[in-house]
Design a protein around this nucleic acid. Structure first.
Lengths: 333, 333
DNA sequence: TTTGGTAGTGTAAACGTTTACATTGGCGCG
DNA sequence: CGCGCCAATGTAAACGTTTACACTACCAAA
């Protein structure tokens, strides 16, 4: 592997000049610049990043900590991160924690020891070992994406769950439904509450009072959707529409409704949230809300790079608009 | 950030001793070792990886190049890679190419310039800039996972597509079917051919001759499955079973069959391949073949680390067994 | 002619490690 | 006692950059 000294020798200049040609070409005369550039080509010189990093104390890398890479939504977010990171000449390091706080801590420690210039956390909590770093005077560059545990304290990028869920609920209301049930996500997930709020808000704005009996527990799984639907169908006055906190539960809902001999959307309308890949292929195709996952990732990365470059404490929160994607699972009453 | 010199000073020893305590503790007296360890704790010392890497010329990192991170299968493979990498103290760098050979080349160049110790490629081709590196005398550590473009030349980890597809086809044959159609993947994908071969092999072993009219084109999409099914249903003597090269096409098939008024599996049996998340939730639940994706990743990583450590040119090919997962979409005739 | 400024280039220190080699002192053995 | 060996430790070079500072020409202004 040829080094900068070889190039300098080949070009008949000092190493400093070579380095300058590469970084601040305007500071070296045109003539010399060309000679050096030629020497670089000739020697097939590739700068040693390790040395560069050691010297400049910049890793030119960011780490993303994620609980489950296999979650398609997270995967898409990371894809967005990667895309803008690549544009900016940054490398993305992957830290998959499996949801284990200990592993998350491990990654955080790794990150904090100057191995990367910043961290994007996709998970639901701030790794405890990162806490002191991001809260100190000159915080370690950090942004939280997707989940909103504390948007006031930490830079956060994600959708407005409350508003988005109010949107889809309003869409259902606009189709004349008045008895609308909601299937919640798990209680320990911050988005669950925001979506419930959005649901209630839409009802209230339409002059209705939310009925606690129509808000039923779920855990984002298909099975939970089925169970919840079975429960709702058994009610004295069952809902004419069900808005689910995510698509998978909605799929479970549809299945259970069908199994009960009723039809979607003729008898009961169903709406989901997330617009997962298969939402398009359910029967009927699912009306849902799509989160611009790649965009979230891209903006999170951009925010992080801002923090890295300007070193300004950007406590900004970016809310990315969602799209209601109308398919066939909601019908006017 | 405290460095090794600070620790040495705190412990009243030389930097060399500190380094030795950290790497070859058996070479330093118990007494000194303890003093140093205490100093490390006291000063909250975190070794600077950049310096270490510069000095040792080891990046302790591997790169995985993948076309689409959003492909759930790839995501799972990467999850497997990450898991064993973490165990071994390696970092995983992500390179998502979007299928663009130019971007792949870019990553390969990055990798080759000593930034990482090895590369795992999940995509369908060897990045051209990597070619000279992996084919030279002391090859750059490299393993190909998932796709088999050239298992004889490069270390490769993946399933035996031919055998696995023969398995599922045989399963269908064992249920008495004799007119069995196959929906292919795209022709430019290496696995397509292996699966077609497996299909044919099973038929031949059962004493049948494959009928070219029953092998129809597809591209792994749900829509392609629908189209292919429509075509097959219009045949003079339509198949009693359809084995699809992947699950998504199988889903399209099921839908089209239902739309034609027939039923799965009573009228026509359907089998898929991949065992994607939603295979469990189709109606009827899809009989398919599951690829142990995480395992593939893990083994690929292990293979890569072998190559890195032993520096032996391990041209081995690892075939990971698949599981036929029997659900309800195939029924005895 | 002197002075001072400037553009271009070189010299060498520094980044934080690892490790070959040198040094020290203790001990066994002839 | 003298020799050699060994274990434990220290010294300093090296890894490949970047960059502060020094230096050299050259030129303009006084």
């Amino acid at each position: 592997m040829t080094n900068i000294r070889d190039v300098a020798h080949a070009a008949g200049v000092s190493v400093a000049t070579v380095s300058r040609v590469l970084h601040t070409p305007e500071k070296v005369s045109e003539q010399v610049r060309e000679t050096v550039l030629k020497a670089v080509k000739d020697t097939n010189y590739q700068p040693n990043m390790m040395a560069r990093r050691l010297r400049t104390k910049k890793a030119h890398a960011v780490m993303v900590i994620v609980s489950h890479l296999t979650n398609p939504f997270y995967a898409t977010v990371i894809s967005g991160i990667q895309s803008v990171a690549q544009q900016r000449g940054y490398t993305v390091l992957l830290g998959e924690s499996g949801g284990d706080p200990e592993v998350e801590d491990q990654y955080a420690a790794f990150a904090s020891s100057k191995q990367v210039d910043g961290v994007i956390q996709l998970g639901e909590r701030l790794p405890s070992s990162l806490k002191p770093l991001v809260e100190r005077e000159h915080p370690f560059p950090f942004v939280n994406a997707c989940e909103f545990w504390d948007p006031t304290t930490y830079p956060t990028v994600g959708i407005d769950n409350r508003k988005s869920f109010a949107d889809v609920t309003r869409y259902v209301l606009d189709h004349g439904h008045r008895i609308i049930a909601h299937i919640k996500g798990p209680d320990d997930n911050p988005v669950t509450h925001h979506r419930v709020e959005g649901y209630k808000e839409a009802l209230i704005n339409a002059g209705l009072t939310p009925d606690p009996d129509l808000i039923v527990d779920g855990d984002f799984s298909i099975e939970a959707g089925s169970r919840a639907a079975a429960h709702l169908l058994s009610l004295a006055s069952p809902p004419t529409a069900i808005v689910s906190a995510n698509d998978e539960m909605a799929i479970g809902v549809i299945r259970t409704i069908k199994e009960s001999g009723q039809s979607v959307p003729s008898d009961i309308s169903v709406a989901g949230f997330d617009d997962i890949h298969f939402a398009k292929y359910t029967d009927p195709p699912l009306t849902t809300v799509s989160q611009p996952a790649a965009d979230i990732g891209g903006q999170a990365a951009a925010l992080l790079f801002d923090a890295i470059d300007n070193k300004l404490i950007s406590n900004r929160t970016i809310r990315i608009p969602t799209n209601l994607v109308v398919r066939d699972s909601v019908k006017a009453i």
